[in-house]
């Protein structure tokens, strides 16, 4: 089937947010993208629209294509030229939403929606924090029908969902750290226990208990450091895999898993501390046991 130069898109008219004067943000219904012949020959110059890159991919739309946008299915709309593709921002609250987003010039959107000269909200840039406070107070005192909010307050309100997820992740992290700590302690205890015969031999040839403990603890620390080094590499690889998987799954640039120096430091410190603790515990037990008993005599 030949590719039609004009696509018809319809927009849900409600729940529209207009974050700035110059551009509009719209929810697009993906299933409504249909191929339709133009109602009339296209004018020489069309208003432009920026489409969600996912919509462009899914509907096979290219830059320069003409699309028809309407406020509801089945009603006439405006024909616009696709001037740009936009990618979704790294917004956690958007991750699991499949709706497409497009951006249009404010006047075009107002016309399509029959909104008249109305906007949902204004974004205002100020010089500094004091100016923001003054502006908010001034607007709230003078402008009937409007209410000014600090962006940070709105961000806090809208990020409540993400705050819950973040707390959930932290809780999962606590459980995981508990499991890792037990695993590490277990491995280190076994590692030191393996050295029973060597420890017995060292004690029999006259090394002091302190020297034996030192040797075992140094070995445990080395094993922990080498192990945690390997763990950091493994963690970094796993993090990349997790990011690649989720980013392709949700088609978002959001970073899901981040290996930061702080996290690396914490992981290495935890494993070294646990390794040392296990080393000291096991080594002290070994040196308290008579060497011949260690040899099974």
């Amino acid at each position: 089937m030949p590719r039609s130069p004009i696509r018809s898109l319809s927009f849900r008219a409600r729940s529209v947010a207009l974050p700035a004067l110059s551009h509009a943000l719209l929810a697009v219904l993906p299933a409504r993208a249909q191929v339709a012949p133009p109602a009339a020959p296209p004018p020489a110059r069309h208003a432009t629209i920026a489409l969600d890159a996912r919509l462009a991919t899914d509907a096979g739309i290219r830059l320069g294509d003409l699309v028809v946008v309407a406020a509801a299915p089945g009603i006439p709309g405006d024909t616009l030229r696709v001037a740009a593709f936009v990618r979704r921002g790294a917004d956690p609250s958007e991750v699991a939403r499949a709706e497409y987003r497009v951006r249009m010039h404010l006047a075009d959107l107002q016309r399509v929606l029959g909104y008249g000269d109305r906007v949902d909200r204004f974004a205002i840039a100020t010089r500094d924090s004091a100016a923001t406070t003054r502006a908010i107070a001034g607007i709230n005192a003078a402008a009937f029908g409007f209410r000014a909010h600090r962006s940070r307050d709105i961000a806090i309100e809208t990020s409540r969902t993400f705050a819950v997820i973040s707390r959930f992740h932290k809780a999962i992290g606590v459980i995981t750290i508990g499991a890792s700590a037990i695993f590490l302690l277990c491995i280190m205890l076994m590692k030191v226990e393996e050295r029973r015969r060597d420890v017995a031999a060292l004690r029999l040839v006259g090394l002091s208990a302190a020297s034996v403990v030192r040797a075992v603890v140094i070995e445990a620390a080395l094993v922990s450091v080498i192990g945690s080094g390997a763990g950091v590499v493994l963690g970094a690889v796993a993090s990349r895999l997790v990011n690649a998987w989720y980013q392709q799954l949700y088609r978002t640039p959001l970073t899901f898993s981040l290996v930061t120096p702080g996290i690396v430091g914490f992981a290495v410190a935890l494993s070294v501390v646990l390794g040392l603790a296990a080393g000291v515990l096991a080594a002290r037990r070994l040196v308290r046991t008579p060497p011949l008993a260690l040899l099974g005599r």
Binding site: I175, A179, C186, L189
Partner: peptide, 19 residues
């Protein structure tokens, strides 16, 4: 024979199982 080790292993498996 190695009670501490067994207890730790069971605890570790328990955390994994819980997860």
């Amino acid at each position: 024979r190695h009670r501490a080790r067994t207890a730790l292993a069971v605890a570790g498996v328990a955390v994994s199982a819980a997860m």
